[in-house]
Design a protein around this nucleic acid. Structure first.
Lengths: 158, 158
DNA sequence: GTCAACTGTTCACAGTTTGAACTGTTCACG
DNA sequence: CGTGAACAGTTCAAACTGTGAACAGTTGAC
């Protein structure tokens, strides 16, 4: 079934290339702030309620806990998030996005909206609607998959 | 139109997250070879005929020419590509994928096929078909966009 | 024939990410 | 209770990535 589709013609490869390229775009627009796409991802994941603690972020984005410390440090320094101890479990740091953080997200939101608009233009309304639907669904699955499953988890097929 | 969709709910953000995550998967599977997703991208782009020279790769993947030198060096060391001067323009190095390189692509192809299968399972056949279609189309546009347009080009909306 | 642009290369450096070792906290179990 | 394993986060050194500046050879325009 996959005999006719070589690696460069798989959706997996294309998803990787397009996503990585898009990350470059965001990185460029973030450069003056000194932040990276991972900072932005952290902010977004927290704001959406997909992650509450640093450990959640590490699992969700598959980076080491020690990197999350740095990301959170830098976001906190810039007043984009707040860290406070969970009263229920004083080991944990509960992360919340500040108003300033929300502003940054909104700003990036307009870039993202522009990209979305370009996707719609390139694909036509029907197909771009399907793409949106598919990506939303996959994002949901990813988040669902990474809810405390003991050990590390992969995205797709392991 | 974008008033109701915050940044984390755009397709642009989701595409970035899912693509980056997938790149991590490939990175993990490549680790024993000492290669990175960018090596793989280079190999794939050359094999597909999307890039002939190092400069093509740099433009297509938006990395510095000096990084492409390294990537090509390492791929060449492992006998995955060959570099030879273009007789028509002796500044250029024409890249070709060796048999060994094709084997690696095939190997990664089965991982990619597994991911594709999982996407299909998660989305249902109808929707995953649309996703494939959309990604293929966007990939085509990306390649088209990056044909020698003088200066740097962005993915989506710049 | 000269000069600017192009392609690739080298090198030093900044930025990113990780793993190992550590602190403090919680929870299970006797 | 009190001991010890697991957990959440932190620190630090070290490895790895990726870039820009300076350079060499090649081409093409004038």
């Amino acid at each position: 079934m996959a005999a006719n589709s070589s690696f460069p013609e798989t959706s997996a490869f294309r998803l990787m290339v397009l996503g990585t390229d898009l990350a470059n775009d965001f990185a460029e627009h973030l450069r003056e702030t000194g932040l990276t796409p991972k900072h932005l991802g952290t902010l977004a994941m927290v704001e959406q309620g997909f992650a509450r603690t640093q450990d959640d972020i590490a699992r969700l984005m598959r980076v080491s806990p020690s990197l999350v410390v740095r990301l959170a440090d830098q976001l906190e320094q810039r007043n984009l998030i707040e860290r406070r101890r969970d009263p229920e479990n004083r080991r944990k740091h509960i992360l919340t996005v500040t108003e300033e953080g929300k502003s940054l997200l909104a700003e990036m939101g307009s870039l993202a909206a522009a990209v979305d608009a370009e996707l719609a233009e390139r694909l036509g309304q029907r197909l771009s609607g399907r793409l949106d639907e598919a990506l939303a669904q996959l994002m949901g699955k990813l988040v669902e998959d990474r809810q405390r499953p003991g050990t590390a988890r992969r995205t797709g097929a392991g």
